[in-house]
């Protein structure tokens, strides 16, 4: 026993090292699991305030660009409003209108160059945001909410190698999965589009709405390159994102009013399977 203790004491540096590294590895694995409300991320008050200060001082240099974006979004909204007032007589649009509610938020912290990019925004639980909600911008899908604190939240960006978004080719109606490969922040891959489909360069890719996170029909991007290897089961498709993530300044969080209803219905249905 004495010898054993001596052995541990002699190599205490190595064992401390091993212990710390194992702890770090455990944190890493734990953190990769989707959706958490843990304290140790940039949504905690101190970190978010520091990031907010740093973003605030940088913002002065990009005011012109932010202005442009807001005015472009404004004109888009105006067009939409015009359409809606025209369609107001036909009652069919009413259902989809009440299904979703939007919360606008400012981006405090965003990166595109890492393999796992996250976005910190300045709205949190007090604005009704919960983990699992979808985030979009005026140009397209942005990501999902990963963690929330009282006043801030962290989004998992589409530019994250762990993130997958169920999507569909607008022209043909075929399904696929959008996933980033970690290299170019403008391009993502569209996976699992089978051989018999004929995707073309310039086709639009939108969200499929087959999960309760993203509503269907939200713009993701436009196909930039289509390849088909001889023996491959699926196409290699590169999609150019419609939202340039390097200039993301505002996002909207979608609160799906029917999400809990859909979830509980699905649980009940699956639960009933003998």
């Amino acid at each position: 026993m004495q010898r054993l203790l001596n052995f541990f004491y002699e190599y205490r540096a190595f064992f401390t090292f091993l212990l710390l590294e194992l702890f770090c590895a455990w944190l890493l694995i734990e953190n990769n699991q989707y959706q958490s409300t843990k304290f140790f991320n940039s949504s905690n008050r101190l970190a978010a305030n520091i990031l907010s200060f740093s973003q605030g001082s940088r913002e002065y240099f990009s005011l012109r660009q932010i202005n442009e974006e807001v005015s472009r979004e404004n004109s888009q909204m105006r067009t939409l409003l015009e359409q809606l007032t025209r369609d107001a007589q036909s009652a069919s649009t009413k259902d989809s209108l009440v299904r979703y509610e939007f919360v606008s938020a400012k981006v405090l912290n965003n990166s595109v160059a890492q393999f796992k990019n996250y976005i910190t925004i300045n709205r949190g639980r007090d604005a009704g945001i919960e983990p699992g909600m979808a985030a979009i911008s005026s140009f397209g899908a942005v990501g999902k909410v990963k963690a929330v604190s009282e006043h801030f939240s962290v989004l998992i960006s589409i530019l994250n190698i762990d993130e997958q978004v169920s999507s569909t080719l607008k022209r043909t109606g075929n399904f696929g999965t959008i996933q980033w490969d970690g290299t170019d922040p403008r391009l993502v891959n569209l996976l699992y589009v089978p051989r018999h489909v004929q995707p073309l360069v310039g086709d639009t890719v939108v969200t499929s709405g087959y999960n309760a996170v993203f509503p269907g029909g939200i713009m993701i991007g436009i196909i930039q390159d289509v390849k088909l290897k001889d023996e491959a089961l699926f196409y290699d498709i590169r999609v150019e994102l419609s939202q340039d993530f390097r200039r993301l300044s505002f996002v909207k969080i979608i609160k799906s009013k029917l999400k809990s209803e859909l979830d509980s219905l699905e649980t009940v249905t699956i639960g009933k399977v003998p």
Binding site: L20, L27, L28, K38, N41, K116
Partner: peptide, 18 residues
């Protein structure tokens, strides 16, 4: 905490310290 990558930088830096 600021990079939202809990454990990643800690792991690399502890190795450097060792």
């Amino acid at each position: 905490i600021f990079y939202d990558s809990l454990g990643l930088h800690a792991m690399s830096l502890v190795l450097v310290a060792y």
